[in-house]
Amino acid sequence: MAATPDESRTGPPTPPDGGVFSAPTQVMDAGDVSRALRRMAHEITERNHGVERVVLVGLVTGGVVLAEELAARLAEIEPAAPPVGRLDVSFYRDDIALRRVMPHAVTDIPVELTGRVVVLVDDVLFTGRTVRAALDALNDHGRPKAVQLAVLVDRGHRELPIRPDFVGKNLPTSREEDVRAGLDGVQLRRRTTGVAGDRGAVTGSEAR
């Protein structure tokens, strides 16, 4: 198997061809993120007529703290916070044969999913391949009544017919850019040297 430029979901790499990234620019600060999550919490409960049947499932690693934060926000506006789980989709990715994909955390689904509404939560929506893997993984844990998708940033460049239900911020990007999103803010950086890559297509990396 030919070696491909390796890329970890958790650590944005230097460009595979040896180029460098520009200094990151701040797109959202912690306050912006907090306000976006508050709005998303309201949208989630509005769409589902409350959160009684809702389970939040954060995608490892970036979605986990966001799911916890959304649950905390929902607890402020609803009688009870929905349960929160986490899902590591490593074993379901479509690029396992191309690169070494190692799990970063143990999947933890705290409740029976059958009949529930699962809200998948991730930090950045990019190609859609992580979400596709997550849908496969959910299948092995039960049959939810519905699956919805909440992301802090939608950066475009979808390679699959997947769209988010709840979005913190739509952020138009080029493929040469990397996005990092968390509770403390959202940053964008651009490759300044080196040839344009198609890393999204090759690695299927969702977060970058």
Binding site: D6, G11, F21
Partner: peptide, 18 residues
């Protein structure tokens, strides 16, 4: 058997963020 590339933990560049 999963993949053939180098270990992802070798990935560098995180420190390049702000």
């Amino acid at each position: 058997l999963a993949g053939s590339a180098a270990d992802p933990h070798d990935a560098v560049g995180d420190e390049a963020w702000g």
